[in-house]
């Protein structure tokens, strides 16, 4: 059974500064983060926030400027080989040997890992609808992603570290990926996945760490993040609308009216909005998910409530 209080990932003031010519670039600043066993932890942040840097530090591909990371009770730096035996990894930009077939790549990785359950590999191949007989160079980006997922999952690792795992996957495959992750969680294994897409994280994660500019801003439950979530709604009515029609409605803000077109920001359920519109002929409704940046600003204001360096990270879980 999963012990949800055991930290599988524990970082202490983990920092990374890259040197570019004469300039120092702070990629990650004093990251102190704890991921528990048996949870799916989403690591959310815009491009360049430091997600990949964190993952590369955890896997000892790069070395920290300061701080430390303990993964599965092992020091990420000193015990990296033993750690890699127990971790499945999918890089954000997956490159593989183009001249090899998918099967040859799987066999090479399996030989290096040892103890791979080939029945499970076969099952994964079928579920991901992946053809391993083709050469890597002929795979589409989606198929390469499937191969990467297969390589990460094949040894039933205690911890999966996945960098933007659904990049390039079609919606059907994303659903299969979500099912696989839930199965991993049900087995008491842990998933650490990075993403810049809020909805992706919301659909499978238990908790979410929000990273911005190399600093961890907060660690939230997905439920708390949902509370902050909103969407942009554009309504096209047949007749010109009364500007006061929706202005007082709970959950509606930033309403603009342009003749018969209303644009608004909606937090919460759709029903109050639809009820307010009963009596009006609605030609079209368009909804648009809020960007991560918008959610972030909505939740934290202009960063004024965000975590400051040196302060303990806000944890609501």
């Amino acid at each position: 059974m999963a012990n949800h209080n055991t930290p599988v990932i524990q970082t202490e003031n983990l920092s990374k500064v890259y040197r570019a010519g004469k300039r120092d670039i702070l990629a990650l600043s004093n990251l102190t983060l704890s991921v528990r066993q048996g949870e799916i932890f989403g690591y959310l942040g815009p491009n360049g926030a430091g997600k990949t840097t964190t993952i590369r530090l955890m896997l000892d591909l790069i070395r920290p400027t300061s701080g430390s990371a303990t993964i599965l009770g092992l020091d990420a730096r000193r015990d990296s080989v033993e750690l890699h035996r127990r971790v499945g990894f999918l890089p954000g930009e997956l490159s593989l040997w183009k001249s090899l077939t998918g099967q040859q790549v799987i066999e090479y990785v399996a030989r290096l890992r040892g103890g791979v359950d080939w029945k499970y590999v076969q099952e994964l191949t079928e579920r991901l609808q992946f053809d391993p007989t083709l050469r890597v160079r002929s795979y589409s980006s989606g198929n390469r992603r499937k191969l990467g997922l297969l390589l990460a999952l094949m040894n039933k690792a205690e911890l999966l570290i996945l960098d933007e795992p659904t990049n390039g996957l079609d919606p059907l495959m994303q659903q299969i990926f979500n099912d696989l992750m839930r199965e991993v969680r049900a087995e008491g294994r842990t998933v650490f996945l990075s993403s810049h897409i809020l909805s992706e994280v919301q659909s499978i994660c238990d908790r979410v760490g929000i990273l911005r500019g190399g600093r961890l801003q907060a660690v939230e439950t997905v439920a708390a993040l949902r509370h902050a979530d909103f969407r942009w709604v554009t309504l096209h009515l047949r007749e010109a609308a009364n500007p006061h029609l929706l202005a007082e409605l709970p959950g509606v803000t930033d309403l603009t009216v342009d003749g018969s077109i209303l644009k608004l920001r909606l937090r919460g359920d759709f029903n109050p909005l639809l009820q307010a519109l009963s009596g009006h002929y609605v030609v079209d409704i368009k909804t648009e998910e809020a960007s991560l940046e918008e959610i972030f600003l909505s939740y934290y204001g202009n960063g004024s409530n965000a975590h400051k360096e040196g302060e303990p990270v806000k944890e609501m879980a």
Binding site: R56, L59, D60, L61, S80, V81, E82, H84, R85, V87, F89, P91, E93, L94, S95, L96, W97, V109, L112, R113, G114, L151
Partner: peptide, 14 residues
Amino acid sequence: DDGILDVVLALPIP
């Protein structure tokens, strides 16, 4: 240069 080394070095091999 190709990024393949990330995959290799994340495997249990020093």
